[in-house]
């Protein structure tokens, strides 16, 4: 059955990919993130822009293309996200 993902879960998936599942040491490309997070190009572009502006992701220019990797703030946010996902799960809810 198809599962509706809330905005917060998509952000969590993107950050988790850039933390745990990088292509190389420079980070993950947009195409790679689209595939991993299962999201459209236009939507991920907006989200990546927000995450970079908030300091959760670092944008790295490599050979004319942009790659993304998680920042220290992003790691802390992801940790808090998992903590409160579990908290909501305890109440039978999802954040």
């Amino acid at each position: 059955m198809a599962e509706y993902r809330i905005h917060m879960k998509i952000i969590g998936d993107i950050l988790a990919t850039t933390r745990d599942d990088l292509q190389d040491e420079n980070g993950a490309s947009v195409t790679y993130l689209i595939r991993k997070a299962n999201i459209s190009h236009s939507r991920i572009s907006r989200i990546l822009k927000t995450l970079v502006s908030q300091g959760l992701l670092e944008q790295v220019d490599t050979k004319g293309s942009n790659k993304y990797r998680i920042s220290q703030s992003g790691r802390e946010f992801l940790q808090a996200y998992y903590t409160f996902t579990n908290f909501a799960d305890d109440f039978g809810l999802s954040i």
Binding site: M8, A80, Y81, F84, F87, A88, F91, L93, I95
Partner: peptide, 18 residues
């Protein structure tokens, strides 16, 4: 308080209701 901290961190409406 725990739910409030969660709401401040994530902006989740579920945590706001809690």
């Amino acid at each position: 308080i725990m739910a409030l901290i969660g709401f401040r961190n994530t902006g989740s409406p579920t945590l706001f209701r809690l």
